[in-house]
Amino acid sequence: MALIELRGVDFSYSEMETPVLKNINLTVEAGEFVSIIGGNGSGKSTLAKLLNVLLVPSAGEVIVDGMNTADEENWLKIRQKVGMVFQNPDNQLVATRVEDDVAFGPENLGIPSPEIRKRVDKALEAVGMEKFKDNPPHNLSGGQKQRVAIAGVIAMEPECIVLDEPTAMLDPQGRKEVMETIHFLNKEKGITIIHITHFMEETVGADRVIVMNQGSIHKSGLPLEIFREIDDLKKLGLDVPLVVELAHELRKKGVEIPAILSINELVDSLCS
């Protein structure tokens, strides 16, 4: 059974307006690393909010680990299974101390205090923030705040983490920290990751890339397959990484280059 399954999902914020999401069909298996890209307003955040019942579909159904999100009794269980990390690092930390913030989720679940202690320590270690456990969050860097937010989700022991443009407000160093953290969690802890981004180079290393356009899934495939059709992506208003575009232009001029995603791969293929 798939971990997350969307069947014919439509969503509109108000009945008058045209739907923001149209007929979305999507399955995510446990342990996958899925990247979702798409232009502004293509419905990525709306889709993310459907996955942990911050929104409920207007038509169709969202099934998480066999539980339908339409049934209110399942909401807490689904939110425990599918954690969410948001774009703005400041606006999702609740407490005045890092460890208290990480404890917030388990506290809401009614977990006994000694068990919370264990989970908080484990979660902070998993994101490499154990040294900061007594700090107030407002003194941390953006990347560190996002890692604390991720720890807060891990402490709830979820099966899947949905991250909605977690790097959009970070500097390059912070972006690197966050990307390394989520790849580590996926590989070492087996946590399913759904990573929404508008930086295409961040989809490198994903098992699957889903391209959204105007509320529909435009296409989905391996990162290499998606990157091959550059003109198509540009038409959707997406920024293609410079190396990929360079390789594309060279290919047009007759240089033989296989599909590449990173600068190292380009160097290797040009120098061989």
């Binding site: 911050l54 939110r79 606006n91 208290d100 917030f104 809401n108 919370i116």
Partner: peptide, 27 residues
């Protein structure tokens, strides 16, 4: 107000549902 809106969503997604049944890290 923007922040309050974001924070409410973030709290909800972390299973906040009022004080009922909540435990604490430090008792």
């Amino acid at each position: 107000f923007r922040r309050a809106d974001d924070l409410a969503l973030a709290m909800e997604s972390r299973c906040y549902h009022g004080g009922e049944g909540r435990t604490r890290l430090y008792e």
